[in-house]
């Protein structure tokens, strides 16, 4: 092997270890009942247990915050699709100018960090529609906004790869109504990008901390942050589950995303 290649392999290995070690440490801490100090080659494989995870799963505080996070994630994905798919489809068909407007507006959330967005939101709605701040589902619009740059890009790629005009003309000339056309022609053709966008929205919601923390809503990440003190092993175990889950979502999004392009 040439020395140059060896150096590049070294880069890959060092960074690979850096990516791997924190995750392995978290796994060990969550599932092995041996303090780091007492850890040695003789007991690396002993006292592993999934009990911390099971105990936490039966905790009512965990259950309510997990349910809340799951519902918020689903609501966010649904609202994202309802808001974007029809609007973007029509813009693609009829108005390149509108398409550009949507494209620019979709990267705006990058400019407003979550912390600024949420304090502005709380201030703006405190005196006008306080219900939005009080109900945890008031956060859904903010989540939609936070995920917008990613979800928009995905759907945009999906739409760009379709011959929309032909599909719609065919469907319409066969007598299908507009609603039928969208539901049974456009949506099935966009299923890969719709799935990708949904996965991205789910990932954003399951990991989001800033917004829920400032509005004092007990989502899963908030539960973890506060349970860390009394139940470190259990909350690290759940943290690991969250990592695996969002890794799965992102990987699924990549898979589907590739199908969008090809």
């Amino acid at each position: 092997m040439k020395p140059g290649r060896l150096a590049w392999w070294l880069v890959i290995w060092v960074v690979g270890l850096f990516y791997l070690i924190p995750m392995l440490s978290m796994t060990r801490f969550a599932f092995q009942r041996i303090p780091v100090i007492k850890l040695s080659f003789n007991n690396v494989f002993s006292k592993w247990t999934i009990e911390p995870l099971l105990t936490t799963f039966s905790d009512s505080g965990f259950r309510s915050s997990a349910m809340l996070s799951i519902w918020l994630a689903i609501a966010t994905a649904v609202l994202t699709l309802l808001l974007l798919v029809p609007t973007m489809t029509i813009a693609h068909l009829r108005s390149p100018r509108m398409r550009r407007v949507i494209e620019i507006s979709a990267v705006l959330p990058f400019v407003v960090p979550a912390i600024a967005l949420v304090v502005g939101f709380a201030g703006a709605f405190r005196d006008t529609i306080p219900q939005l701040i009080r109900s945890p589902f008031g956060m859904v619009p903010l989540y939609v906004i936070t995920a917008l740059p990613f979800t928009h890009r995905t759907l945009e790629n999906g739409l760009a790869s379709l011959d929309l005009r032909t599909l719609i003309d065919a469907s319409r000339s066969l007598g299908a109504s507009w609603i039928r056309t969208v539901l049974f022609v456009i949506v099935p053709n966009m299923r890969a990008s719709i799935a990708t966008a949904s996965f991205l929205a789910l990932t954003v919601v399951l990991g989001e901390f800033t917004i829920a923390s400032l509005l004092l809503k007990n989502t899963l990440p908030l539960y973890l942050a506060y349970a860390q003190g009394q139940n470190p092993q259990g909350s690290f175990a759940v943290g690991l589950v969250l990592v695996v889950l969002s890794a799965g979502f992102v990987t699924a999004a990549n898979r589907f995303g590739k199908r969008v392009v090809s």
């Binding site: 969550a30 973890l224 890794a247």
Partner: peptide, 18 residues
Amino acid sequence: SVAANMGGIPLAFAFLSA
């Protein structure tokens, strides 16, 4: 692409335990 999306509480846990 997985790690670039990582952040938040679980990442802090991972580094605390490492």
